[in-house]
Amino acid sequence: MQTVLYARVSTADQTLEHQRTQAERAGYAFDVVVADHGVSGVSTKLRDRAEGRRLFDMLRRGDVLVVRWVDRLGRNYTDVTETLREFMNRGVVVRTIINGMEFDGATTDPMKCAIRDSMIAFLAAMAQAHAEATKDAQRAGIDHAKGRQTAYRGRKPSFTQAQYDLVQEMLAAGRGVSDIGKSTGLSRQTIYRLRDNPAGAERALESWR
């Protein structure tokens, strides 16, 4: 049996040593350290990475695989869930440094299996969602730098400027919400929103002009 640390970094500002240091501080000692440098977890499956392939070749029943978090294995939902299932089916225990989670295929209790599988699905989905959000933010930054950024306007208002003005006038006159709704054709919910956050409503109108 052996304990293996798998580390992956995809950018120049990340370091493999940092992941190893984190693991050692968490109390782990390793027989082998396997690391991929400059490899994306979104576009490149674990099997397709030079060092990632080593894991599939070397891991056996009773081995322990340690990763900083599941996103080191990948940032694609299907890839991560399939990878974890294969390792567990082999009898490999997968542990994460962050949150100290453990995924063990030896579990036979149906409820524990359901909780484990649900957690795997959740963490894999989180890894992909985080990667997509980061990609969107990077794209927005690039667009902004190129002068092509279009400001996010939010949802289009369900009211016009004329309706907004009329609502504010009727509220100032002490008219009731039902009366205002009949006069403007707006829902009670919209009227309450215009009453409680007039500045926000103004900004929404301005962004859509």
Rank of each mutant, 00 (worst) to 15 (best):
D48A: 15
G27L: 06
I180F: 07
T150N: 13
Y192L: 12
V9K: 01
T15N: 00
M1T: 11
S178A: 14
V94W: 08
S40D: 06
M1D: 12
R116D: 05
E17I: 01
V80I: 10
K45F: 08
R20P: 00
A173L: 10
I97M: 00
S43T: 14
H18N: 05
C113A: 15
W69T: 09
F159G: 04
D165Q: 10
F30W: 03
G52I: 06
V39M: 08
V70T: 07
I180N: 01
Y28F: 15
H37I: 08
T190Q: 13
K45R: 15
G62T: 02
I97R: 05
P157C: 07
G200F: 06
T108Q: 15
E24I: 13
R49Q: 08
R95L: 01
Q149F: 14
A137Q: 12
K156S: 07
R60M: 12
A137G: 08
A133E: 14
A35W: 01
R72E: 02
Q138S: 09
T3E: 08
R193F: 14
T160N: 12
S207P: 00
N99K: 10
R75D: 03
R49P: 02
A29E: 10
E132N: 12
A26C: 03
R53G: 15
K45T: 13
H18Q: 08
R116M: 15
R54Y: 08
E132Q: 14
M170H: 10
R53C: 09
E86K: 08
V94K: 06
H130R: 14
R195C: 05
D79V: 04
E82V: 03
V80Q: 01
D104H: 06
G200V: 02
A114N: 07
K146L: 13
D179E: 13
D179A: 15
A12L: 06
R47C: 08
A26H: 06
L123I: 13
H130L: 09
N99S: 07
L59D: 03
R85E: 13
V93I: 11
R148S: 11
E86L: 14
H144Q: 15
R175G: 00
V167C: 01
A151T: 04
G27I: 09
L84T: 00
Q161D: 04
L84D: 01
V9Q: 00
M126Y: 06
R193Y: 14
P110A: 10
I97A: 02
A162E: 09
R60V: 13
